[in-house]
Amino acid sequence: MPSLAIVERGRVSLAYVTHENQSANGNGAIFRAGTPQRGGRITLFEPPPVDAVAVEERAAALGKRSIKKSAKVAGLKLAVAMMDLTTLEGKDTPGKVRQMCQKALRPLEGDDTIGPCAAVCVYPNLVPVAKAALAGSSVKVASVATAFPSGQSPLSVKLEDTRRAVELGADEIDMVIDRGAMLAGDYAKVFDEIAATKEACGQAHLKVILETGELGSYDVVRKASELAIAAGADFIKTSTGKIQPAATPAVTLVMLEAIRDHYYATGRRIGMKPAGGVRTAKQCLQYLVLVKETLGDAWLTPDLFRFGASALLNDVLMQLEKERTGSYQASDDFSKD
């Protein structure tokens, strides 16, 4: 069933939300978030149950395609253009971020047909450094915000975090949802936080990290995807990269299907970003197949599909060089950004 959210003056109303698993929180079939606005529409979150076996089967089947030669090269080049080069470590320095930005601008020295990457993803403090390093280029600066990676802070702190990151120059904000609230069945809180963060983002694009590894089941992932989409996400993203398992083809497929159903219902295109766990060129081609088969060619663009990765780029470059030269490459020959 299509989901609709009504956002008026930044205040989100969400009424008569039904929960398919009624015994989970014991509060019956209907619960409310906020007060229904006068004239507000009723929103029903009734995601179809996800058949876990079928989803895994389909994701695995789509991962078996053999993509060779020119199609492989085209796919890998597209993957580079879709990549959010990411460094989210306590030890990040301005130097490391600058180096990564150079890599995003020109991933492979000596071949300017490859890249640039879509964005770099850093902590808010390093946004100005990345912004300066990427000035004048098409590469966006994404920043994580909202008490990344746990999301366990008061909303005011999260919103402040978001506003600061935007002020510092972030073009895109990667927020985390409150998984605790999601699992406790407090969907209203999750929804309201996403909607408030979307407002705090202003012009910046919002990517909502569901952290699927902590959500427990595909049903919850599907529900969280619909919540995030309804609350105003521009992108939904699988993981922070700090929790295992991170992105898997199956969980990505569940999220892609939520995007597809939303598109059918509303005509609005939501982006997808698997992050963490995509390490090899082969895997990233499999993800591209998933996207093409689920959403079609319209999504095969950096505007609607991204890879969040740090180790992936070098493997893709190694495969591209392998295709060009005919010999397998050594990982030491590629710069560690």
Binding site: S327, Y328, Q329
Partner: peptide, 8 residues
């Protein structure tokens, strides 16, 4: 040949 060409 692939062994000799492999840069690793």
């Amino acid at each position: 040949p692939p062994l000799a060409k492999h840069r690793e």
